[in-house]
Amino acid sequence: MQQNPTLQDSKTPPLQPSNGLAIEARGLSRRFGHVVAVDALDLTVERGRIHGFLGPNGSGKTTTLRMLCGLLRPSAGTAKVLGMDVAHAAEAIRRQIGYMTQRFSLYEDLTVIENLEFVAVVQGLPAKKRRVRLDELLGRYGLKDHRRQIVGTLSGGEKQRLALSAAVLHEPKLLFLDEPTAAVDPQNRRDFWETLFDISDGGTTILVSTHYMDEAERCHSLSILDVGKLAASGPPRRLAETLGQRVVEVETATPREAQTALHRAVGVLSVAQIGTHLHILVDEDASDPVGVVTTALRDAGLKGQVTSAQPGLEDVFVAVTIARRKREAARSAA
């Protein structure tokens, strides 16, 4: 799939970033009244990467994206997008980014082609290129048969593909996607990610927010957000590796009893039942995670096979949120 990331370059001299970073944020914060939505966030995204924002609802993902798009002013901190300061160069940034909002934000009462034509003109796509580009997008995103269809009557997956084509229509260097797969089924999600990799191959940097672990795992790098704070960041695999041996699995005939017993055990952070297995995260201070779990089961008079397991992103997420709760508890105690 061919992408031409130098469309803007033909009109304006390329704005050279200070380094190979597409996004660089320091201490980025945003308050709404007394609520701190984003709290001193540091973020670096290298060019050409797919960077994920992982976090539950209300963790500040959308607020951060909006600040990076220049839609919200940071209460504190600075951010450079494509080498330009969001506080001063919002308009220049807008010409080079694409933004797919969380909520569908094209006109439901216009047809597919009317929407795309509108966005094309507003984005300043030259008239000569417009027709070719729109045909190309309609073909690539499977919307050719829906050209003249009123957008309000499209399915969730079709709307999402339309929203994506509108966001990449002007061949942005940086693409912001805010929970793009929230309204689509798993098959469409897989296809959608294939498309993202195609776009990424063309040289576009992508910042995508999600609360799906499987999507987060596909990103080149990841920032885990928790109540507005950066909880962890790095490539998904390395994040998981930081947990070392702390994940333990138990196979037992009495999973409910074992779960109750383990919940009470010292050193056990979380227990989740997956089928007949128990998936357990052990405290980082424990030197022998398998030993901790074995002892706890024996003390409760239960039998089970305890093995060390490969940590996943979900474990990272759980570890991060629990660590935060512990810090908060310690602070309120002091």
Binding site: C69, R95, I97, Y99, S105
Partner: peptide
């Protein structure tokens, strides 16, 4: 309808 958010992100 949220379309203003799209619109103001354009030039």
């Amino acid at each position: 309808r949220g379309t203003l958010e799209m619109l103001i992100t354009t030039p």
